[in-house]
Amino acid sequence: MSKNEILAAIRRNKPTGAVLPSIPTFPEGKASPVVTFITMVETGGGQVIRASGPGALQAAIENRFPDAKRIASPIPGVKSNVALGAIHSPSELEPVDVAVISGRLGVAENGAIWVTEEDCIHRVLPFITQHLFLLLDEAAIVHNMHQAYEQIQVDASGFGLFIAGPSKTADIEQSLVIGAQGARSLTVVLEPPLTSG
């Protein structure tokens, strides 16, 4: 069997030693992670809006895409007219204009946002939609990828991903084009942390 052959060949040929290094804590930088995060999302071709409460989120969606016909979102308070629970085949999501999904965590150094299958309901939703909104709690922004992987558990969901902007390509003469195979735009809606009282 190939498995045993491959493993036997590895055991014959592999080097010895080499301990696994421990990852140190890197300096966090002086800038506020929220400010860096916003800059990085914008550098990656995304937009950032600050809004609090479902009303402001709904207004932001309508404001940016007044002509959107099909809006899909599992977030309570967002006017979704696509019944995500009634979708049987993911290809039925092809006509979606705008998807609004919650992100779990943001990373300042690169503007990436961790999103899980549970947030999407259907794994293909953040890709197949023409435009994507990601809702993120400002307090859930960390400085770097090390902190991010410390906080998330990658196998807690069957599928999880970092999204750092709209789909893009530079495969034709290195010219940047936004809107390759996935969403044509990304709008990050930052929710300020709840103030007490």
């Binding site: 770097n144 990828m145 090390h146 599928f159 999880g160 970092f162 902007g165």
Partner: peptide, 29 residues
């Protein structure tokens, strides 16, 4: 999984000068 922190910081910066690829997908099930 913690080693992904190291490699995702290096990969796209080395490849195209981006801070990270737009999509970094983790398939488990």
């Amino acid at each position: 999984a913690e080693h992904l922190g190291i490699f995702t910081r290096l990969l796209a910066r080395s490849a195209t000068g981006q801070p990270i690829t737009i999509y970094t997908s983790h398939y488990h099930r």
